[in-house]
């Protein structure tokens, strides 16, 4: 299954499953569902519910 991208609808930061968020302890390849619910957007602090999957 290929990796997907999710965009923060507040500030436009993009979470790419292929890259994860290593700075925040989320290794590359982490599926969006497996990103902890307490994780917030590194750029603006929005929560996961403020992200939308990006259509490829």
């Amino acid at each position: 299954m290929e990796y997907r991208k999710y965009m923060c609808i507040v500030c436009g930061y993009i979470y790419d499953e292929a890259q994860g968020a290593p700075d925040e302890g989320i290794p590359a390849g982490t599926r969006w569902e497996d990103v902890p619910v307490t994780w917030t957007c590194p750029d603006c602090g929005a929560s996961k519910e403020d992200f939308e999957m990006m259509e490829i």
Binding site: V10, C11, T40, D43, C44, G45, A46, S47
Partner: peptide, 8 residues
Amino acid sequence: PFVMPISN
């Protein structure tokens, strides 16, 4: 006046 402090 920034998004992150307001979200917090």
